[in-house]
Computed example of a mutant assay.
Amino acid sequence: MRFFEHQQAARARSLRLVALFALAVAATVLGIHFALLACWWLMNAWLPIELPLPRLFLSVNVGVTLLLVLGSWWIEASNLASPGAAQRLARRLGAREARRGDGAAEQRLCNIVDEVAIASHMPRPQVMVLPRVQAINALAIGMAETESVVMVTQGALDWLTRDELQGLVAHECSHIHEGDTRLNMQLAGMVGGLELVWRLGDDLREHTALGTLAGWAVMAVGSFGWWAGRALQAAVSRQRELLADARAVQWTRSRDGLGGVLRKALMQRQQPGATASDPAWSAALHHLLLVGTSERGGWFDSHPPLATRIRRLYGRTMPPLPLQSGLASGL
């Protein structure tokens, strides 16, 4: 795998997609203003007299829309910006701290995190385990390297070899090193703000005739912004996953480590009722997982399909790997 080329391509695509996201937000803000302006013109066409346009019409329209979008972004970002916020979120998800003396699997995990942190020249993240989750998965959260957490599921500890677990940890540390957690949470906050714009239009419809007309106009423009924001956020997330895959290969100098993780996750996904055993991750956390919750490859999927990621690692299609205990591979 030409990991440096893949990293440069993923970063370039991510930058273009973030720019498109900003344009979608700007188009939504201006679209709301012009939609409300059109409603004002229509109302004047129905009335026997022409009413002057209210003062600060543009400023209020733009200001309220930006307040909803940027306010939601600020709330989402500040929730993880305070000291210890990532650890508190991890505990709410059911995670606990990994303990070196609590069995060979957790001892091995802590050793690997130490090694990857040294290899990547970054502060060691706090290591936590999701003990009741049998799906092979992991996620990294935290707005800064010094306040970050890597969570690994019990299924990953049970089924992955040492090399595979190293590839998994390197992938998650790449997300922390590249600021992907911060980027994803900020985009998720703005998508939430775009949804609030749509809901504002829905609320306006319940009042006067003018409110109904304005409500439909705001809903039409808000729905464009919301759907465009969701699609672009998912596209950014897919590129950051490919970037983290390439970075993991660079740091571990092995495609079989992360490749084995993805191939075993694919085998687990193909078992009957596998997705039903996954935890009910919130929409904001979908973008932070190692293995996504959907394999359809649609516009709104936060991860590329596992088969696509495996093919990029190996340059060809590879079969799933059988699930076997990985604890015999050493500490």
Results as ranks from 00 to 15, higher is better:
N111Y: 15
M128W: 04
L196V: 08
L213T: 11
L160F: 07
R132F: 13
F224S: 09
T208A: 04
R205F: 04
Q107F: 06
L204E: 00
L160E: 05
R96Y: 09
A138E: 05
Q154G: 04
I118L: 14
H171M: 07
E206R: 00
V127G: 09
G103P: 15
R92W: 08
E206K: 00
Q186R: 06
G193C: 10
M190A: 04
S174W: 12
E206C: 00
V150P: 02
R199Y: 14
H207D: 04
M190I: 03
I118N: 15
S223P: 13
R205E: 08
A144K: 05
L210I: 12
G225V: 01
N111D: 14
G225E: 00
R99P: 11
G167E: 03
A117Q: 12
A119Q: 14
A95M: 01
H207E: 02
I141P: 06
E172G: 04
L139S: 07
G103Q: 15
V127E: 07
I176V: 06
E145S: 10
L139H: 12
D203E: 14
V152A: 11
V152E: 11
M151P: 06
G179H: 04
M190K: 02
D203F: 15
V191E: 01
G94F: 01
I118D: 14
P123L: 10
R162A: 07
M190H: 05
L93C: 03
A209R: 07
